[in-house]
Nucleic acid binder design. Structure first.
Length: 328
RNA sequence: GGACGGGUGGGUGAGUGGCUAAAACCAGCAGACUGUAAAUCUGCCGCUCCUUGCGGGCUACGAAGGUUCGAAUCCUUCCCCGUCCA
């Protein structure tokens, strides 16, 4: 075993490592470096890397970058499917059960904060989404004045309505949907306990490179993706007959490149738009992760050896035992 | 050389005498977010002061003058830019 097991409770609690950070901060590289050192396997926690065929634009680590370390929860969905936070949790739990059997340390590389929360803290017992209800609500909204949906929610659940902006149609629809399916207010369902992940204790590392440096990184990475055949990947996916409305075609870059293929915008316009959206996305990730509790922050990129060393030292300092092999 | 059109805050661009520190959008910054989350949404956004108030001061619509109680808005000259005519 590469780590010790706490024996002071009836259920042994196993450690797990979480690496959070904005896109292009080098989570994958750091994950692999730490996996080698501590005998771990990588579990991706990224809503976009779940999709088969969407490789370049989602910055899925290549086989070479994986360096022989097994990676889980990549390529588990068909482009037509839609991922959800709840399903992610279930898949991740299955992976954890497997790693536990094989005594491997899990290292989660997480870009999607909601999915990590769903895994670690759990979600309330909420009904799944219902396309019929959503469709009905959308139609109803189109037929009425702007505040219509918000007004409906206010009747069903004033507390939740107070928390959601009248313009936030997406969240209002989900809230109404839950109220209808659960036959009680969302706010009430939220007060029921979540089911946190049992049997595992997370140790969290966060990557927070300087904003300007990150922006540069995003710029050059986008260029590299484009010269690396990203447009061709999009063309291939469309040629394979996947519908344009498929979820992953909405991801940053895929939507822009689709427009390039349809001659709606030029490649240069797409490049600029992608770089911009990616930067904005990184900002949102940072906002989310800042609130994550107990994160050990490192002010740099995960592919930087100094950062990798600092991360390894941190883990060793909190009780993780490096593999002996390779050490003279 | 002549005729038009135009020069507005980081960008695009509205505004043609007071309600204008100047619409709207973008960018930027900050934030929220329990099954679409690479999504969706919110706030701030000239500088500055304080007793943080629908508060005070300063600077601002190419430049300089002028008209007016009051000008981004009217007048004069100048400087740029675009289109057309020579």
């Amino acid at each position: 075993m590469a780590y010790s097991v706490s024996m002071n409770s009836a259920v042994p609690v196993l450690p797990l490592v979480v690496i959070v950070g904005p896109t292009a901060s080098g989570k994958s590289a750091l994950g692999v470096a730490l996996a080698k050192k501590f005998g771990a396997e990588i579990v991706a926690c990224d809503s976009t890397q779940l999709y088969r065929g969407f490789d370049i634009g989602t910055a899925k680590p290549s086989l070479a970058e994986r360096a022989g370390i097994p990676h889980h929860l990549l390529d588990v969905l068909e482009p037509r499917e839609s991922s959800t936070a709840g399903e992610y949790r279930e898949r991740a739990e299955r992976v954890l059960a497997d790693l536990k059997l094989r005594a491997k340390l899990p290292i989660f590389t997480v870009g999607t904060g909601l999915y990590l929360r769903a895994l670690l803290e759990g979600l309330a017992e909420l009904p799944q989404r219902s396309e019929e209800i959503r469709e009905r609500l959308r139609e109803s909204a189109a037929a009425h004045t702007p505040g219509h949906l918000h007004a409906i929610l206010k009747k069903l659940d004033a507390e939740t309505a107070g928390k959601i902006a009248p313009a936030d149609k997406q969240k209002i629809i989900r809230a109404i949907e839950v109220c209808l399916l659960a036959r009680r207010p969302l706010s009430e369902v939220h007060r029921t306990a979540r089911k946190p992940l049992l049997g595992w204790t997370p140790t969290k590392i966060g990557l927070q490179p300087p904003r300007d440096a990150l922006r540069d990184r995003i710029r050059t990475r986008t260029d590299a993706m484009l010269t690396g055949g990203w447009l061709g990947e999009v063309r291939l996916l469309l040629d394979q007959g996947y519908p344009e409305e498929a979820k992953p075609f909405d991801f940053i870059g895929y939507r822009e490149l689709r427009n390039v293929l349809q001659k709606k915008i030029t490649l240069e316009q797409a490049r600029a738009a992608i770089q911009q959206s990616t930067g904005q996305y990184a900002k949102r990730q940072l906002t989310w992760f800042r609130r994550e509790h107990g994160v050990h922050w490192l002010a740099g990129f995960g592919d930087d050896q100094k950062i990798q060393r600092a991360a390894a030292e941190f883990l060793a300092g909190v009780g993780f035992v490096p593999l002996a092999a390779g050490n003279p």
